[in-house]
Amino acid sequence: MHESEPARRVRVTGPDRHARPRPQPRTGDIDDETPLGGVYLGSLLREQLLLAARILGLLALTVGSLPLVFYVVPGLDDVRVLGVPVAWLLLGGLVYPWLAWLGWRYVLRAERNEHDFAELMGEVER
């Protein structure tokens, strides 16, 4: 027996638990048109369409309902706020900041949806 010969030391290493594994991009599923790719794309489309519907719904409920309100409440055109008839105040001024605010909310949310999608695809590292 060769007991006198010392066994060579072998360095044994495991996977580094501190380094996160690099995620595999999932874009292949979409490129190959797999059912999973369809789910990914479908979720993005649904999110964006829901967001658009919410914004347009708000637009219809606020600005879009005004003609009906003035039709149903005929006395409203005599009401004045700070000396200005309320119709002129609402339709000639306040409606524009409201439209811009709606647009601003939309842009922020739409970009977040796209960021989430890119993250899901493994292209964006936190």
């Binding site: 914004i55 347009l56 003609p67 524009y96 939309y106």
Partner: peptide, 24 residues
């Protein structure tokens, strides 16, 4: 009078509709 205020409102809100449905 005020009924014509809908023209400028529509011309502006058209861009909001365009933004949420079409732009990107």
């Amino acid at each position: 009078g005020a009924e014509m205020l809908w023209y400028p409102i529509g011309w502006t809100a058209g861009y909001l509709v365009l933004l949420v449905l079409v732009a990107a």
